[in-house]
Design a protein around this nucleic acid. Sequence first.
RNA 1: GCUGGGUUCGUAUAACGGUUAGUACUCAAGAUUCUCAAUCUUGCAAUAGGAGUUCGAUUCUCCUACCCAGUACCA
Length: 563
Amino acid sequence: MGGVRTALYNYLYAKQHGGDFIIRIEDTDSNRFVEGAEQYIIEALNWCGIIPDEGVDANGKVVETPSAKHPHAPYRQSQRRAIYRKYAEDLIAAGYAYYAFDSAEELSAKRAEAEASGQTFIYNQTTRQQLRNSLTLSEEETKRLLEETTDWTIRFKMPENHIVKMDDLIRGHIEVNTDTLDDKVLWKRADELPTYHLANIVDDHLMEISEVIRGEEWLPSLPLHYMLYKAFGWEDTMPRFAHLSLLLKPDGKGKLSKRDGDKMGFPVFPLKWVNKEGEVSRGYREDGYFPEAFVNLLAFLGWNPGTEQEIFSMEELIGAFSLERVVKAGARFNPEKARWYNREYLRMKTDDELTDILVPVLEGHGLNIVDCPKCALTAGAEFNSKGADFEKHIYTRDYVKEVVALVKERATFVADIWTIAPYLFISPKEFDAFGIKAGTWLDTKPADPRRQPDPRAKVYDDTLTAPFLAKDADKFWKDENPSLAKDAASFLCQSDLSIGSEAIAEALEEHIKANEWPMGKVMNCLRLSLTGAASGLGIGEIVSLIGKKELGERVEFAAQRLG
RNA sequence: GCUGGGUUCGUAUAACGGUUAGUACUCAAGAUUCUCAAUCUUGCAAUAGGAGUUCGAUUCUCCUACCCAGUACCA
């Protein structure tokens, strides 16, 4: 999420200023190569609608050879090896860097030693004179080691007592004394690759990068980067910098990590990711978020337009974004608000768009959706007036669309439409004892389906044959006069159901009142019979969709089952 | 430890020296309804602490506390 947000801000900034958004793969650590990571990044950005102008071709592949559209290729630093060494050597020739021959083991031993005596070992101007490098060794010795050993490095020679004056687009002016900095490794002989610091500065220069918008973890390296630009003599074309605060975990302390998502039940990855060990991290895409909602909520994590508008399309974001309005403090991610954003976007979608997404979900639950009634003829479907065959589980797309129109205002994700009202597709075979005990006749409230996956939905998937608790049935069927539900149902069967759900409900209510039946009880018993649950859609709406035949069968089945 | 950055309702944020400190999410209550949602209305809730500058500080300065990052031959 943090990475996508950083990319998004870069993209918005670039597009707003008529610039290009370039993808460069900074893979200079051969030990940390992760199979598939590069493709994942490109796919994730693509899903978000962040389309690079340069660096990635139309097929989503990182460009390796220069062309008019991709003049700075290759865009993988591992394929730019040849470039960096020259620049590192130039730095040495100019006295800004030196060869260091201390092995990684020697250095970590020194660090451990210093730590044991309560101190910190730093490779800097006070220690470099006691270490093995081209500053302390003779020229011949240096030359010999360069040829005979393969694990030397090139380090930046940080000057003494120099105040580096920096400007950050978000944080303003910052000053740091070089005495607090160390001699960073710029180039490693072991894998013939530069470190981030060198590769980044060289490539940003070569690729004519004008703005660097990156995470706050880079702020401590900024003075080094300033010094490098100065050493190269590139100060005039140095990019401007902006350091973004980090995303924090929803509770407690620290920055957002993969584990938080697992623990709190929300994704921290844009797309599902499976690592080498087979560990699965869920993704926003797979969880049912709209990319527009994801982008919108990410944009607002650490930025705001200063107005009260909260819903922004990518186009609007490009217009409104500004680094001046990026917040300096770390932003804590709020999963509730994330869901709210998705709900808002779901409501903005047309019924057709939502239906397109819902159909595969329904098919995944074993339902058959056909585009037209005629298509189903060969399958032998017998549709009700709305286009549903409950026995064979075949439904027209138009029927699905009606369900979408009816249920979407209660849903956060498209898949919720099924979870909220499976009974609009499948006859309930089991009845929710919890629902019977809840509702009006006993004083407990059912769980809010918004907050949790509705446990009642499981009734349809898992427990079709689970026995209904006899004492609950007793309570329901005998004490609450639900036989009136049967009478109400037979009234409906004799009525015209093509008059619309509101008219149906109205007629039914009049009938109940005329007979002086208890309204709430009759209605709720009817709902339980039709849906298997004690709460949900309006009776008129349900009846209008499922039709007389299904209505009669469901009430009859409920009476048998619960009676 | 050191260096740098940060700190406004529970959360995201607004107010860039003068406001009854606003908005959204969450939560609570009410209206509505056959239930549950949705919707509408109302409500709860914050300037980390302390000095200073100023007629006046959320806003500027300093100190303290706390949080974050860096301190790798990682990015």
